[in-house]
Simulated scan of single mutants.
Amino acid sequence: MTRFGYTLMTEQSGPKQLVGYAQGAEQAGFDFEVMSDHYFPWLEEMGHSPYAWSVLGAVAHATERVELMTYVTCPTVRYHPAVVAQKAATVQILADGRFTLGLGSGERLNEHVVGEGWPGAHVRQEMLAEAIEIIRKLLTGEMVTHEGDYFSVDTAKLWDVPEQGLDIGVAVSGEKGIEQFAELADHLIAVQPDAELITQWNAVSGAAQIPGKARAIGQIPVSWAPSEEEAVTRAHELFRWFGGGWEVNADLPTPAGFDAAAQFVREEDVAGAIPCGPNLDKIAEAVKKYVDAGFTDVALVQVGDERQEQFLTEAAGPLLEKLRAL
């Protein structure tokens, strides 16, 4: 049975609000919660970008049942993988084993801030693979020294290691990425309801199978509101960047760049890509694409901050009933 999650969207809400939404999502019945990890929002209208790991610690303390996950963290430029290993281990302990470390190769939008440049896509993938190797070593609790192609680690050791271990999910978008990461990761992360991704993952020798030991974790934006007009307007204001695709989005440096790239995106374009309005059947039909593709987990993104509480208290319960009936 597919599990359904809620996205703690750091780009559109402040840190205290996110902790409150995490509690509300748990009470509404969501199975898990994922959190984005950005330095910038995609658009200035979104208005927020608190430090995800501080918020995760608070969420781990404020919730009891829901599983938690980064969706996703880049452990290569803005963060050194040794630091990612330490904070992921700490969150896993705070969450009593409910945390999964979701990783990806990153976006220039967030990673350029440390002034180390932005490598090409193939280099980013190689850096991610080496970072996973380092994180895995440190999670053993042993002393680690590493001299690789991209990273050095000098006699590092994690002193607080979770007894439960720590699963790692990796964001992939095609066959090449799957071939590179299926054996390194525990779970697949993808933002398109593409059944072929799961088929390709399962075909990799040594990869954990989906469904089974491995999970396929997807994500879909929705814009619920009492009126369709309001929902479409908000989705266009805050998520018009969404149609560019990750090959474009990964290389844009600032919110101004995303704004320029999306200047010709119309409200009807966004409404065609994101289910908008009060019709829960319409939202469920969009989510069903992931269920039909074989995804084991699907996280919903409720677009905008102003309707989050109402979404969680009024719409989430009935929507989850419809989703679980799929």
Rank of each mutant, 00 (worst) to 15 (best):
T2S: 13
L8F: 06
L8Y: 06
Q12R: 06
S13M: 15
G20Q: 14
G24Y: 09
Q27A: 15
Q27F: 13
A28Q: 08
G29P: 04
D31L: 01
F32W: 10
V34S: 13
S36K: 06
H38R: 04
Y39T: 08
F40A: 10
L43H: 08
H48E: 14
G57V: 04
A60P: 09
V72S: 07
T73F: 05
C74P: 04
C74F: 02
R78C: 02
A82F: 14
A82C: 11
V84T: 09
A85G: 15
I93K: 08
D96K: 15
F99C: 01
G102Q: 04
G106T: 01
G106D: 08
L109K: 05
L109W: 02
V114A: 02
G115L: 00
G117V: 07
W118D: 00
W118Q: 02
P119F: 00
A121Q: 14
R124Q: 03
M127W: 01
I132G: 05
L138M: 14
G141Q: 00
E142Y: 02
D149A: 14
A156S: 13
V161Y: 04
Q164D: 07
L166E: 03
L166T: 02
A171M: 08
A171F: 01
V172I: 10
K176W: 09
E183T: 13
E183V: 12
L184M: 13
D186A: 03
L188G: 00
I198Y: 02
T199K: 12
W201P: 06
W201N: 03
S205E: 15
A207F: 13
A208Q: 12
A216Q: 03
G218F: 00
Q219G: 14
S223Y: 03
A225W: 12
E228H: 11
E228N: 07
E228A: 04
T233W: 11
H236D: 02
G244Y: 13
W246A: 08
W246C: 01
V248T: 15
N249Q: 15
A256T: 06
G257E: 07
D259S: 05
A261F: 05
R266I: 08
E267V: 12
E268H: 15
D269P: 07
A273L: 15
C276E: 05
P278E: 07
N279E: 14
K282T: 11
I283K: 10
A284T: 04
V287T: 14
V291K: 02
L300C: 12
L300R: 10
D305M: 01
T313E: 15
E314R: 06
A315S: 06
A316D: 13
G317N: 08
E321T: 06
K322D: 06
A325D: 11
